[in-house]
Every structure is written in structure tokens, then in C-alpha cells.
Write a protein that binds this DNA or RNA. Sequence first.
DNA 1: CGTCGTCTTGATCTTTCTCAACCTGTGTGG
DNA 2: CCACACAGGTTGAGAAAGATCAAGACGACG
Lengths: 232, 232
Amino acid sequence: MFEVVNGRPSGERRAATCALCPLGKAAGEGQGGRCPMSDRPRPAGTFLYSEGETVDRMWFVKQGTVVLSREADDRRGRGVAWAIRGAHTLLGAEGLVRLTYLDSARAVTEVILCSASRDEIKAWIDACEPAARALLDLVLLGHALDSPRRASSEGNAVERVARWLLEGPVSPGVPRTVIAELLGMLPETLSRALAALAASGAIETTRRSIRIAGVEALHEAAGFACEGENHD
Amino acid sequence: MFEVVNGRPSGERRAATCALCPLGKAAGEGQGGRCPMSDRPRPAGTFLYSEGETVDRMWFVKQGTVVLSREADDRRGRGVAWAIRGAHTLLGAEGLVRLTYLDSARAVTEVILCSASRDEIKAWIDACEPAARALLDLVLLGHALDSPRRASSEGNAVERVARWLLEGPVSPGVPRTVIAELLGMLPETLSRALAALAASGAIETTRRSIRIAGVEALHEAAGFACEGENHD
DNA sequence: CGTCGTCTTGATCTTTCTCAACCTGTGTGG
DNA sequence: CCACACAGGTTGAGAAAGATCAAGACGACG
């Protein structure tokens, strides 16, 4: 009935003009204005940018699909895809509130992209009312703090909990049930994982608090730095 | 070493003024301007808004923690928490590009919130350059399309795949490996789940395409509408 | 036409979900 | 001030699900 996934891009309209892009239109393209972005086709598999790199450009996807992946700590390179961006979406917007990219972006189909330098885009924003700027910052920061829910295919419960604890401090007073949901596991499983971490000396827990007792041990429990430790 | 989770909010500075809030500052609070938001303390457990409701207000979290949950289709009520918002974050920003809330927001600790009507906030944005407005729209729309990665505690692989397929069409040409990552499972598991769905007549698959053959069957496989079907 | 990457299928084993009982701190009312 | 009930958290034993390892099939591409 409905074509949902795959198939081929219907109608190879490569001539996607700037007038089709909201940013191009907004910049007044076709009416004397000029969009600072420029088209670029890319083959599937292209890495647009990598997590942690300094933001220099931002992209607008005109055609194709890009996936975002993030790897909390070490083993840079291939993280696990956690978000997908299709046509008519913007990539790298975190550059407006941060210096470095939060995710790695990889084209998974052939794509047509526009890109513009961070500074050019930022100039648009800086010309705005302070209130609007503050609002945009808040929106971006809110999403920047999001971390992808880890799935069971990314290590066992103990590893996932350890990684989550290493990601940074979390607001006090949040019930265990909620933490378990955020980690994609049941409260029982979280409880067992915390017990295991406590037994290994990585953390100290009471019924309502979690305290990191040994960053070393926690790193080890997370599976970081100890898998490829053959050079030493 | 580090206090990470729980404990009690240190120093009960309830008198969080508008000057501390970026939006308050930006609105010129304390310098003759007036922030359209107003403080409100709320107990833990308060529902701020529910998925699908018309957006009338937006919130700024001054203190405490709020979780966002989303339930793809039916069984409204309590979805599963998938994102967390702490102090100094904005809630309900999707109202700038949509009519309804995308998530349900629930306070999980005592919170102090500012809220302002959507129209007031929107007025700030509308006063902006078209380019900046377009940019904000793109950012918000990009995140609005995100759907939380489902965890194994939210149904088995077949259910999760079925729900994901029902969430809407996905860009063509995306490899199975990527889809599996987005769904938080291994390619093997995805393959088996798709085979099961195909066997039940819900979908038709080739090696590179997925086609919904029966929305009814797919709904059933997703576990919707068939669990509570005791009234008939 | 042969090679390669991607996807599928199969058998086994670990993990975690499930269901259940129990513990513990909190708040309530006598 | 103590007994009680309650919600949230912990622990335990069993079953189901998915991860793992390995081999084979299909389609794309040179």
C-alpha cells in the first residue's frame, strides 16, 4: 500500500534550487538576496563531520539521508546511529551554542547538501533581538544535553549504567524508576547493575543516592580503555 | 568523590529571580523590560502537559527536573521517559512549529517553573529576520522528527519494528544495518523481526525494500488496540 | 562472470524480562 | 510516641528474548 523504506529516489531532480530551501528563501534568494550556502552532491558513506571536531560549517540536507551517531567516551570512529535526518533538515546547528560537534554525521544514501560556514549563519542570529537569540540558545542547549538511550545491543546493563554515570552528573532527587526508563531497562535490572558496580567498588549507593567512588573502576566497568590495552 | 545523583538540592534559594533566567534577562527584566513569564513552584509528580494537547504555554525550568515521555500511538497516559530536562532548560518549544505537544512532561522532583503563553514567545520570534526565523524552524523541526530509540523493555523486537514502521515513512535507500542501529537491535534481530512481520502478512519485504501490506496486521503486531479489546 | 558487501538463516548461550516476595524509609493516625 | 500502611527499592528463581558465532544466499559492481 504505502512505500515506506528504500526503493529509489523518485524523480532525479538534481536541480534543487536555493529557492526550495527555507534558508535560501529566507535569505531572499531569487529576489536579489544571496544564500550563503552552496550545493554539493556526495556519495553514500561520506562522513560530513565527526563528534568532537570544531564546528566550522553547517549543512542543509536537500536530498538523501544522514545518520547521527555518538560515542560517549573513547573508541572514537564508529559510534552507533541514534538519529536520522532526511531532506529539508539542518545539521550542525549545535555550532551556534558550542564549539564542537556533538555527533558524527554520515550520509547513508547519496545526498545533496548545502553548506555554509558557521560564522555566516551565526551572523543571521546575532542580528536578532536578544530575546529571540536567548530562545534559540535554550532550544539548542536543551537538545545538546540529550544523550541517546542506549540499547541492549550496546553492552550489558552494567556497562550501560557505568557509561551513563560517566556522562555527567544528573539532577538530584530523580527516582530510580525514571533513571531505569532513561537507560532503557527495568528498575530491577538497574538495581542489579548498581549492586554489581557497588560490589566492584566503582560506586557507593544508598537507596536514594549514587556516588562515584572510583572513576578508574567505573571506566573499567564501562568497557572503556581496557579492551584495546595491548600497547603498554 | 563526586556527588552524582540524588541527595537534596543544596541551598534552598527559592528566590530565583527573572534576572537569572536567560529569557528574563533578554526581555530586559530589571532594566525596565518585563519578562512575560511568571514563577510557579510545583510538587513532584505534576504533569505539565500531555502529548497531543494543543500548545498553549511554554515553560522554563528554574529548579528541579522534568522528564519527557512519548507513546507512539495508543495507550495514552504514561509513556516511557526518554529525555530529561533540568534547571535552565525550556519545555514546549515545539509549539513554535507545531500545534500540539510532542511529549508528555512530568516533574520528577519539586520544581520551580516559569511559564509564558505560546503567543507571547512566538511574538519574539516573529519580530526576527526571516532568515533567523527559518533557522529556528529548521532546528525545531529536525528535533521534532526524532523519535526515541525504543528499548527492549518496551516490547519485543517484532513489536518495536512494527511501531517504528507505523511512525511514518522513512527515507528510501537506508541500509538495514542503520535501521537496526536506530531501533537499538542487531541486524540479525531486525531481519528476523521483519521475517516474522512478513509471515503474518503485515509487510512485504525484499532485500532492499519494506512495504506495508496491511496496516491492520501491523497495528496488531505492534500490540496496539488488541491488548485492551475486552469491550465488544 | 567472479568477487564483494549486505542481508538472511541457523544453533547455542548469555542476558534480562517476568513474577514474586521482601525490605526500608516515610508519612499517617491512634 | 508508637503502630501501621504505603510507595519505592531490592533480591531471588524461572522463562523468554535477543546477542553471539558461523555459514550461506542474494544482489551490485567491476
